[in-house]
Simulated assay, not measured.
Amino acid sequence: MNESDWAVGDRRRLTFDAFCDTHHRTWSGFAGTRLHESAAREAVETAKDRVWREWQRILREPYPAFQAWTILKEEVATALLRRMMDGEPSPAPGPVPRWVHAVRAAAERAGDLPETEAGHERLHAALCGLSERRHDVVVLRYLIGLTDTQIADSLATTEANVRSTAGQALDRLAGALGGRPRERHR
């Protein structure tokens, strides 16, 4: 390899590293909602390795962040499947998970979910009943705290679509928890 080849390789690695730094919080947060801490870290690292192996192709795609998001979700699903196949139990019920507080607080602040004595198991079941896109938007927006712009980038959509999807998701959650859908402002 000559000096020019090294420079191009270094630049490509710097670009990849910056990309990963930009999305690390999103990826780690999402993996952490599904997996124990060590398994979440491992899934993110495995996803980063895959993204690096496919980096040239990903850069040619119109939405590189969405390509990486897809890879991350595949790695999280693989880790969950591995846990099931190994016969590992679901995480033990304990204190209310942090994601429950985040989703409930955001939704109650918006007046979209009723204050109810229903346990976090019921909220979790309602979240699991959402479509994949709605679930992702709820997790990214209310748990991880991304902006609509950041979510749109990760999911290869528009900010308006993110807002609409979030509203639909909250309506579904409210319905599943015995509340009523939000009133639409026209």
Rank of each mutant, 00 (worst) to 15 (best):
V51N: 05
H36A: 10
S90N: 08
A43M: 10
R57F: 14
M84Q: 11
G32I: 09
G111M: 05
G94P: 12
R182S: 10
T147N: 13
A176Q: 04
W99E: 09
W69M: 04
G87C: 09
L72M: 07
P91D: 13
S154F: 02
V8R: 14
S154T: 05
W99V: 07
E183A: 06
L59V: 04
A125G: 07
I144V: 15
S164V: 07
K73S: 02
R98C: 04
R98E: 15
L127I: 05
L140D: 05
S131R: 02
G29E: 03
F16N: 08
V44N: 05
W55G: 02
C128E: 13
E88Q: 13
E74M: 05
V96K: 15
D49H: 12
T149E: 13
A65K: 09
D136P: 02
S38L: 09
W99A: 07
D5W: 03
D148Y: 13
K48P: 00
A39M: 11
E108K: 08
L177H: 01
T149A: 15
R122A: 13
T33C: 15
T147K: 14
A40F: 13
V139M: 15
G94W: 10
S28T: 04
H36G: 01
D112H: 05
Y142W: 15
R50E: 10
T158W: 10
T22W: 01
L127V: 11
R13Y: 14
R182H: 08
T22D: 01
L113V: 08
A156T: 01
F19N: 03
A7T: 04
L80P: 02
L127P: 05
A125S: 11
A77T: 03
A7W: 06
P64E: 11
R182D: 10
G129C: 06
T165R: 13
F19D: 09
M85K: 10
A7S: 09
K48Y: 15
V51L: 03
S164H: 14
L140W: 06
E45M: 12
C20S: 07
N161K: 12
A7L: 13
R184A: 06
I71A: 06
T33P: 00
L35V: 03
L72H: 01
E75S: 04
P114R: 08
R41H: 10
E115Q: 10
F19I: 03
P64I: 07
A40E: 07
L72K: 05
E3K: 08
R122C: 00
A102L: 07
L35S: 00
A18H: 13
V139P: 04
E117W: 05
A79M: 02
V76S: 01
G87Q: 09
D17H: 06
Q150D: 10
D10Q: 15
V44W: 08
F66R: 08
G111A: 11
R184D: 03
V162D: 05
V139F: 10
A31C: 00
E75W: 08
R13H: 13
L155H: 01
R13K: 14
R104A: 12
C20N: 01
H24D: 11
R57C: 07
A79E: 08
L130Y: 03
I58V: 13
S4D: 10
E3D: 14
F16L: 14
A166G: 04
L14Q: 14
G145V: 09
R25M: 06
R12L: 15
A166F: 11
K73P: 00
A47G: 04
I58F: 08
R11A: 15
